[in-house]
């Protein structure tokens, strides 16, 4: 009887369900349109399999990229129900369950120019990855085989977390800073850059600072890259860690300098009042002249009253100082 019940359960698990897949199509010749496909899937069906089946059984004209089907090659980045995801790492019926709808929409990643259907042009993405010199520059003696590297297991673990970027582009496609600031290298390149900046075996630390520090202060800390990364690389964490190296830089750019001042004034504001005094932080970050200019702008828009809110000190300030390690 137990076996029978087990068998029934397994049959139920494989029950197929019909879904509708709405794909955003594009071709140079025909422009852009939405197209719908219906097919049956079971609880195991990955979205890469959904696409493969549509392509071989219903409509061969769909173009998409897919290779490893196990989330290590980074080919199949796309938007599924509006979320940036790897298609292989997404089970169709999970999406049906989360959104409580049997219709799934599939679109190309945002930001990148679309070449055809779900295939986007990643040239700019690759260019930015190569800008950070994404490779180890080891000591000459190591390259010549005279000595061996040693690496502490804990260093290996820390670096490996950030080395697991698979160049899929999902973080960049969802990054707001990349869109408005061409000088920002983007989350993936920063993860890659930091992985080598922090590698004790590397020899071009100064050069890496020059490449990474300015850009690191251009991130808005929105955490989208943290949310969408299919390998949990946490690009934003690497940007924070990179900023901490600003103090080792000899000639800082304006952006890096302002960034550092900003952090310093936040720290002193908290040390003094236990709160973030926005107006004061602004003043000490940007200086009097710049602040007056911005104040006039704020006044014209009726926002000055927010800037001038006076904060009172919190009780138990010494506790806060303790937390700050003072």
């Amino acid at each position: 009887m137990v076996e029978k019940a087990e068998e029934q359960k397994n049959l139920a698990q494989l029950e197929e369900q019909e879904i509708t897949v709405k794909i955003k199509r594009f071709s140079k010749e025909k422009g852009s349109w939405w197209q719908e496909y219906r097919l049956k899937v079971d609880r195991f069906t990955q979205m890469t399999e959904v696409l493969r089946r549509i392509k071989t059984e219903q409509d061969p004209t769909i173009s998409y990229r897919a290779s490893c089907h196990m989330a290590v090659c980074g080919s199949c980045g796309m938007k599924i129900n509006g979320e940036p995801r790897l298609a292989c790492k997404t089970l169709a019926l999970d999406i049906v369950k989360i959104y409580n709808s049997s219709t799934i929409s599939v679109e190309p990643m945002d930001y990148f120019p679309v070449l055809k259907d779900l295939v986007v042009d990643l040239d700019e993405f690759y260019d930015k990855m190569f800008k950070v010199k994404p490779r180890l520059y080891p000591d000459k003696d190591v390259l010549e085989g005279k000595v061996d590297h040693r690496l502490k297991p804990e260093d290996q673990r820390e670096l490996w977390k950030f080395e697991q970027c698979i160049w899929c582009g999902l973080c960049v496609s969802s990054c707001p800073a990349v869109r408005i600031d061409p000088e920002f290298l983007g989350p993936a390149a920063h993860a890659k850059g930091y992985r080598f900046l922090a590698d004790p075996r590397d020899t071009i630390y100064e050069e890496r600072l020059k490449i990474l520090i300015d850009s690191s202060w251009r991130c808005t800390y929105c955490y989208q890259c943290f949310n969408v990364c299919p390998r949990d690389v946490e690009p934003v964490t690497t940007i924070k860690k990179t900023r901490a190296h600003t103090k080792f830089m000899k000639e800082k750019t304006k952006v890096a300098e302002t960034g550092e001042k900003h952090i310093e004034s936040i720290v002193s504001s908290i040390r003094e009042t236990g709160k973030l005094e926005e107006a004061k932080v602004y003043l000490s970050t940007y200086g009097l002249l710049e602040s007056i200019k911005d104040m006039i702008y704020a006044m014209q828009n009726g926002k000055l009253k927010y800037a001038l809110v006076q904060d009172t000190k919190v009780k138990g300030l010494d506790q806060i100082k303790k937390i700050m390690g003072e």
Binding site: K152, P153, Q156
Partner: peptide, 18 residues
């Protein structure tokens, strides 16, 4: 393996760094 290590491959390590 030594060559790939020298080019940056993050092989898992023993406590002494090898």
């Amino acid at each position: 393996v030594k060559i790939m290590e020298s080019w940056g491959t993050l092989f898992n390590r023993q406590p002494d760094g090898r």
